[in-house]
Write a protein that binds this DNA or RNA. Sequence first.
DNA 1: GTAGACCATCTGGTATACAAGTTAGTACAC
DNA 2: GTGTACTAACTTGTATACCAGATGGTCTAC
Lengths: 239, 239
Amino acid sequence: MVTARTTTRGAPGARSNLADRIYQRLKAEMNDFRVVPGDRLSEAEIGLRFGVSRTPVRQALFRLRDEGFLDVAAKSGWYVRPLDFAKLDDLYDLRITLELASVARLCARSRGSDAELDRLRATWLVPVSGRLENPREVGALDEEFHASLVRAAGNAEISRVHADVTERIRVVRRLDFTRSDRISATYFEHAKILRAVMHYKADQAAMLLRAHIEQSKIEVRKITLSTLFEARSRPRGTR
Amino acid sequence: MVTARTTTRGAPGARSNLADRIYQRLKAEMNDFRVVPGDRLSEAEIGLRFGVSRTPVRQALFRLRDEGFLDVAAKSGWYVRPLDFAKLDDLYDLRITLELASVARLCARSRGSDAELDRLRATWLVPVSGRLENPREVGALDEEFHASLVRAAGNAEISRVHADVTERIRVVRRLDFTRSDRISATYFEHAKILRAVMHYKADQAAMLLRAHIEQSKIEVRKITLSTLFEARSRPRGTR
DNA sequence: GTAGACCATCTGGTATACAAGTTAGTACAC
DNA sequence: GTGTACTAACTTGTATACCAGATGGTCTAC
């Protein structure tokens, strides 16, 4: 659980050290399907590709290992962990647990403190014409919706763990938004959840949220390894 | 969140690489109050002390940083993160969330599948004469009680996060068991929780568990930084 | 006595060198 | 054709070398 944490505070993206930069780029490659589960990585090759020595590469790799993305076999090589659907199921259930707890706390909030919720409303309670359609953008927006709900509940540690879970399921979750019917369903369900929370309807919000995530979990079950390999061969724009 | 994950499978404790060994020893030093929040660490000094080079030391330090125990200031030094009581509060609330979800799932279990629970009963439903008294042992046992509850619920990811939370709060939690009245209270409350779970009394189990952890959280609030420094100077046996 | 500039020293960040184990391919024996 | 032994190339694990920046004490000017 550890965890994804920014150490070098300051201007965003202005990471001073190479290790953090390599870490970001490697994770981006995984999320872009440029490397997929089962792929083999070599410290030297990565260093060569990014123009740095093995030292910062190793730091990044070990961090990714600790976060559960990679495995290392001594003197043999690094491997992207295979997709473990049982683990993804568990992660989705953990997500449900965290988000339900957050929404419960949100619905018990004092009247009037809706700053964070107002921002969500501006994004999700929009007419059909104002909706985004790019799967990549919608995926990012969906993550932000759920992260905001949790953040609004005010527990930084729950937010942190929730963010970690989000990172771990991202690679399959994003594939869900390649279908336009799933995109409109997402807008529809988010709006309903948001209205329930705004009106302090705890039970209804919990019920809707659970169903929303469970549905997403079911869709992910349909993802197979071949889907991922297909995504890799597709040109960048359609991802 | 990262997370404490064993990479080198095989004989327990037979870690082949130095980095993992240094990691374990450093964390042990923190749990033994040999290093306390605010302390400054130097890569060279640690390497000298353990007889290894800076390389494995740095791997261990960065892992501890990612897990939230340390901070590093470029070209300046490593520091044990100060105790953040707001963060500890959040961690305790996260613990409550995870354990309540687990117990709820446990109470919804099918009749008869009590293998894990039976083991807990043997430890906690004992006469007063069979109780442990050593704070260190009781602390470990208490952690194991809660970990077992979560594990019995069957979600590996929730177990992992719960284990991480346990590691993060351990340093203050253990101080709670230096008082004998707190030890007997722990035995008493664990027994009650266990009985409720065994008899499928979901609501009662949840209520008891929440109260149990909340009480522990309140005790921890009384811990001050000076308590930790006192603990450091005390001889090993009494810790 | 005090403020400020300077420099020796220590720090982590990065690159490189070496050690030791794994893997894969090839040549050889049959 | 097949199986095996060997070796050469490649892998990570660890130690070391070097750099730039932060730090803290001292010396100087006032």
